[in-house]
């Protein structure tokens, strides 16, 4: 079955107050449990802030290392989930559940098949 990457796009800056964040984490946990129960959950992770990111690239035979995320912006990927579902409609349905739980936009993107 095709796999899809559901990426959470999170605004940079301070995290929500503990009570709000707590409720969000509870809802996100509930969606994860639902995914596991449905047998579609493959992997998920939350990421530390984009300010902690580093970019390395090969240039003219040398490696270049720079501070910060690759794309400058006000929002960055804050976490992701990989699901294994039959088609885009099913992936979008899970994406909507994650969007409701996180209160953030979710990018749903198919993964290449046939590669581990």
């Amino acid at each position: 079955m095709p796999r899809y990457l559901l990426s959470v796009y999170q605004p940079d800056g301070p995290v929500p107050a503990p009570d709000i964040l707590g409720a969000i984490m509870r809802d996100v946990g509930a969606v994860r449990d639902e995914m596991k129960a449905a047998g579609v959950w493959v992997f998920a992770a939350g990421l530390l802030p984009a300010t902690s990111a580093t970019v390395v690239r090969a240039k003219d035979g040398r490696m270049l290392t720079t501070d910060g995320p690759f794309v400058e912006g006000k929002e960055h990927i804050g976490g992701f989930t990989i699901v294994n579902v039959p088609d885009l409609d099913a992936a979008l349905e899970w994406g909507r559940k994650v969007a409701r739980a996180t209160t953030l936009p979710i990018e749903v993107r198919p993964m290449q098949e046939g590669h581990a």
Partner: peptide, 14 residues
Amino acid sequence: RDARIPYRVPESHD
């Protein structure tokens, strides 16, 4: 093709 947009009539909730 790539995103596998299904070729079917949507389910009732949709």
